[in-house]
């Protein structure tokens, strides 16, 4: 069963734990939470920032980013996979599309040495790969603010 260590932010955990979660972890990811927090992910020269394993729970606020793609605003539970100063990857139960912007919450206390006080609450989806039934791995970039939808 999936379990995780929650010393980082018990209050957030309390909230996140009550959120709806439809993710089905496929067998290939059954050891998803076994990786220790804050281990460095294998180096990749093409990435601007070093990535860290950060297996934890998080919350995602689904929002409408495209006029033609209906999204009902709601919060849901996600599984954070790894993180860097520039972005985050996580598992989610639905397909998300590039350029969609959403709010994200995850325990940040242990990430303070990486983030150094920067706000990391809004993401823009960059890629999405299906990992199994109701399981999509999302790669997203942190952005400062939501895009203006009026134009």
């Amino acid at each position: 069963m999936l379990e995780y260590d929650n010393e980082d932010d018990p209050m957030l955990y309390g909230i996140v734990n009550h959120l709806r979660c439809d993710i089905m972890i496929p067998p290939c990811l059954s050891n998803f939470f076994d990786k220790k927090k804050s281990g460095v992910v294998m180096a990749d020269d093409r990435r601007r920032y070093k990535r860290w394993n950060f297996r934890n729970l998080g919350a995602l606020e689904i929002r409408q980013s495209f006029t033609d793609l209906e999204r009902h605003t709601c919060w849901c539970r996600i599984y954070i996979k790894d993180i860097s100063i520039g972005g985050v990857s996580f598992l989610h139960s639905e397909q998300l599309f590039p350029m969609e912007q959403m709010r994200i919450l995850f325990p940040k206390k242990s990430l303070e040495p990486i983030f150094k006080g920067r706000d990391r609450n809004i993401i823009e989806v960059k890629r999405c790969r299906k990992r199994g039934q109701r399981c999509y791995e999302i790669g997203a970039q942190f952005v400062e603010e939501f895009r203006d939808q009026s134009g």
């Binding site: 397909q95 890629r127 790969r129 299906k130």
Partner: peptide, 9 residues
Amino acid sequence: GLGYPTGIS
């Protein structure tokens, strides 16, 4: 499901 970029089916 063997396509790209998402691998949906």
